[in-house]
């Protein structure tokens, strides 16, 4: 109940701050671009759009939202209600997940791209969005300004996105298998590519481990710097 209240508020908050309009415009433009691209490029373009923007949007936006809530002392008033910290965090994460999933669905529908076995793909899309938002939250807990957040998070953002080089066939190293993004790219690519079951299972395990570590880290940082700011 408290979670649903917080989630509802976060969605309305994002709506009033124009996120949904911004992504509506972007989604339409992505669809148009996909339709204009030559047949052979549509599928890789879709994967890159999903990977770099649609699934990563939480990473991009969460910093400013938490900064604004911290700046206006809203976090303080939230944490003197019975709202639990994990409910607060979950609401933030789920609200971005919703925006990601809806945009992704619309883009796939509009670009008429699909696949036979969507299960792995959907898991990959969801966990990709979750992990990006969690990474954003790690930095959002302490950043002082939006630029501060961007600079700190962008370095990590670029770093964890490196496995895209392997996806494009430009550069690969076994080290990439530690990255959560290697796993998300594999799962997103199951839509059109063939992967061994072992690779898919590796990806799921990789994402679950990252998800667990990041969740604990985010919880600890928010408890320390946002719920009990000194």
């Amino acid at each position: 109940m408290r979670l649903l209240t917080a989630l509802g508020q976060d969605i309305r908050f994002q709506f009033r701050h124009g996120f949904y309009y911004a992504y509506l415009v972007l989604t339409i433009l992505y669809i148009l671009s996909l339709r204009l691209l030559p047949e052979s490029l549509v599928y890789p373009a879709l994967i890159i759009i999903l990977f770099t923007d649609i699934c990563a949007l939480g990473f991009f936006f969460i910093g400013a939202i938490v900064l604004l809530e911290r700046g206006q002392n809203l976090t303080q008033s939230l944490f003197v209600t019975p709202l639990r910290l994990h409910e607060y965090l979950l609401a933030k994460i789920l609200s971005f997940l919703l925006l990601s999933i809806v945009s992704a669905f619309l883009i796939m529908l509009g670009g008429s791209v699909g696949g036979q076995d969507l299960l792995w793909f959907i898991f990959g899309a969801i966990f990709s969005a979750l992990i990006y938002t969690l990474f954003g939250l790690v930095f959002a807990a302490r950043a002082r300004h939006v630029n501060d957040y961007f600079v700190k998070s962008l370095g990590i953002g670029l770093l964890i996105s490196l496995p895209i080089l392997a996806y494009l066939g430009l550069f690969d190293t076994p080290l990439f298998y530690i990255f959560p993004t290697r796993a998300t790219l594999i799962l997103l690519d199951t839509l059109g590519g063939d992967y061994a079951l072992s690779e898919k299972l590796y990806s799921v395990a990789n994402l679950l481990i990252w998800f667990t570590i990041l969740s604990a880290w985010v919880y600890q940082r928010f408890d320390r710097y946002v719920r009990h700011p000194v």
């Binding site: 701050h17 124009g18 911004a22 992504y23 991009f60």
Partner: peptide, 20 residues
Amino acid sequence: FSENKVEGLAFSKVLGIMYL
């Protein structure tokens, strides 16, 4: 057009469209 940094972020997404 934006009233605070959160809206500014949404608008910065739209700004990128200009370069299309």
